[in-house]
């Protein structure tokens, strides 16, 4: 599935609920499906700064695709990062870099998006895109040789 397909699917899942409580419950549920980071990567090196809760993120590059794993000590944060991973993990670096995130507005997470929000949603997206950028550069350099 393309990133847009996945975004549409996530939007549909959230659209079922009107009440914010149900939306957050869904987010908490999503957190339970998070592809967990390997324990050996759960170190300060893999912490994303800018979050009030701890978020560990690991990225690997396999067959031209970025594979993300993560964990958090807060369940809402775990839900947010799992949603991002569902969207980005297994995608090509350039698709991640070119992705549009306006769907987050639709699913009612818009108020979580402001930069001063301590949940670190923006920091997570920035870090994921940074990994994509690095992998892209690496593969560009390799194909030039």
């Amino acid at each position: 599935m393309t990133i847009t397909d996945i975004q549409n699917k996530i939007s549909e899942e959230f659209a079922v609920f009107d009440d914010w409580i149900d939306k957050y419950n869904l987010l908490v549920e999503m957190g339970k499906d998070l592809p967990l980071i390997d324990a050996r990567y759960k170190t300060n090196n893999h912490l994303i700064s800018g979050c009030q809760s701890k978020v560990w993120l690991h990225a690997a590059y396999e067959d031209g695709k970025v594979i993300f794993t993560a964990d958090s000590d807060a369940v809402i944060t775990r839900g947010i990062i799992s949603l991002l991973i569902r969207m980005y993990s297994g995608q090509k670096p350039e698709d991640i870099l070119n992705s549009d995130l306006s769907f987050l507005d639709d699913i009612g997470l818009k108020d979580q998006l402001s930069p001063n929000r301590s949940n670190g949603l923006l920091s997570m997206i920035k870090q994921m895109k940074l990994y994509a950028q690095v992998f892209k550069l690496k593969s560009d350099t390799e194909s030039n040789h």
Partner: peptide, 12 residues
């Protein structure tokens, strides 16, 4: 329960 989770829901 992580304080961030609780605070986020209280805010809502």
């Amino acid at each position: 329960v992580h304080p961030f989770d609780l605070g986020t829901l209280l805010d809502k």
